[in-house]
C-alpha cells in the first residue's frame, strides 16, 4: 500500500529538525514549518522519510496509507 506523510499541525512546533533528514520530501517555509511534497513516497525515499519521522521531537509526523483521511 502506498504511503504518504501526515503531519499533526497542532503538535508541530516548527523546530525544523525533520527537513534535513528528507529534503527531497520535506521543505520548510520561512517560519520553519514543513512543506510536504504532495503525493506518495517513493520506495527509495522511504528510509530518509522514516528518519525524519524519528527526528521530530514532537512526534508530529507519521507515515500513513495514501487514503488515510478519506476513510471514515
Amino acid at each position: 500500500m502506498d504511503q504518504k506523510l501526515r503531519i499533526d499541525w497542532i503538535l508541530c512546533d516548527g523546530y525544523s529538525l525533520c527537513s534535513p533528514e528528507a529534503p527531497e520530501v520535506i521543505d520548510l517555509d520561512e517560519w520553519g514549518y514543513p512543506i510536504i511534497r504532495p503525493g506518495v513516497i517513493a520506495e527509495h525515499e522511504l528510509k530518509d522519510v522514516k528518519r525524519a519521522v524519528g527526528a521530530c521531537p514532537m512526534s508530529a509526523l507519521s507515515l500513513v496509507p495514501q487514503d488515510f483521511d478519506k476513510r471514515s
Binding site: W9, I10, G14, D29, Y33
Partner: peptide, 9 residues
C-alpha cells in the same frame, strides 16, 4: 493559533 502555517501565514 495552534498551527504554525495558519498563525504565521
Amino acid at each position: 493559533a495552534q498551527c504554525g502555517p495558519c498563525l504565521f501565514g
